[in-house]
């Protein structure tokens, strides 16, 4: 194991895949400049090893970053397209949803679209309405796409590798706050399979399901509740489509209580999908109805007191957890 940041781990993962497979390349804005992508060093130095044909520094042209990735994928290579943030990903929803997700299907399986599209999610201090959104549910809703949202450096590296090796278009959503977070990364290949959750803490009284940065907050909440003598099981889904129903069902059958926490706006979010699905499949095991927690249905505000109202904090998750435990 080696301790490293999320950004470093994912960059290592990309470099390892590019060394392994000459068909893998990356495109996006600022990939070859000083800070290598979104000022978070996700691509720093890769231009020196792989050159400008495989680390392609693009114009600010989201439609074409995504559309070119689609064209490149059907023409025989495996592009990793970086759209910087999920907010800018919306500029390329057409190419992702109308083209990438449907080409295999509408052409009767003549082509595969093996691409990865990275678009970072999450509130980062004061980034406000257009640089803070978590849109994972949009893509889970779109047939043809795979969606992953890793929450640790090891999972970021390992899931990027799986995403690159998959023949499906994969939306890779990393949380901006996690880029600088550190964690142990395995020294071996460390591939993390798509669709497999990780039970990061075992417990018997409550199942707490989340993903990305929220899974880390849920671990904090579980620690706090442990001080009260409550035993909480925390599941980090890591993949949102497909998601690990088996792991969640098994946990809910054990604890009888489920709270799903997400950073995104609660209404129409992925937590609603988990809650409904578990209710449909594990109703007999539930001691109380499934609960969820997410952001209020409003744009992300700028000023700190308002941003704090928006955020799903450990305190809010804790209160909802206690409510679930008391019911």
């Amino acid at each position: 194991m080696t301790e490293m940041t999320f950004a470093d781990a994912v960059r290592e993962g990309l470099a390892e895949e590019m060394r392994r497979d000459p068909l893998v390349w990356a495109l996006g804005e600022d990939l070859s400049t000083a800070h290598g992508g979104t000022s978070a060093n996700q691509y720093t130095g890769l231009i020196d090893e792989f050159g400008p044909k495989r680390i392609v520094n693009t114009p600010i042209s989201e439609n074409t970053i995504m559309g070119a990735a689609v064209g490149a994928a059907v023409a025989g290579t495996r592009p990793v397209a970086d759209l910087r943030m999920a907010d800018f990903g919306m500029c390329a929803v057409d190419e992702l949803v109308n083209q990438a997700a449907k080409i295999r299907y509408m052409f009767g399986g003549q082509a595969r679209v093996p691409l990865v599209v990275r678009q970072a999610i999450g509130v980062r201090k004061g980034a406000a309405a257009q640089h803070s959104q978590s849109t994972e549910a949009w893509y889970v809703h779109t047939p043809g796409l795979v969606v992953v949202a890793p929450g640790t450096p090891a999972d970021g590296r390992g899931l990027l590798k799986s995403a690159i090796r998959a023949d499906d278009p994969v939306v890779f959503m990393e949380h901006k706050d996690l880029w600088v977070a550190t964690g142990d990364v395995p020294d071996d290949e460390g591939v993390v399979p798509i669709g497999v959750a990780k039970t990061v803490r075992t417990g018997n009284d409550l199942t707490l399901v989340s993903w990305s940065k929220m899974a880390r907050l849920c671990e904090e909440v579980a620690e706090t509740l442990a001080g009260d003598g409550v035993s909480v099981e925390v599941i980090d889904l890591r993949s949102l489509w497909p998601w690990d129903t088996a792991a969640v069902y098994a946990s809910v059958r054990k604890t009888g209580r489920l709270l799903v926490a997400q950073e995104a706006v609660q209404t129409g979010g992925f937590a609603a999908e988990v809650a409904t699905d578990v209710t449909e499949h594990c109703f007999d095991a539930l001691k109380t109805h499934v609960r969820r927690i997410g952001a209020p249905r409003m744009p992300v505000p700028y000023a700190e007191p308002m941003e704090n109202e928006y955020r799903v904090t450990p305190e809010r998750i804790l209160a909802r957890a206690r409510e679930t435990l008391a019911a």
Binding site: T64, G67, A68, V70, G71, A72, V74, A75, T77, P79
Partner: peptide, 16 residues
Amino acid sequence: DGCTISVGAAQSIRLL
């Protein structure tokens, strides 16, 4: 949409 797909296909051609 064929325009953007085309330039990407061309980049694969170059890479290959």
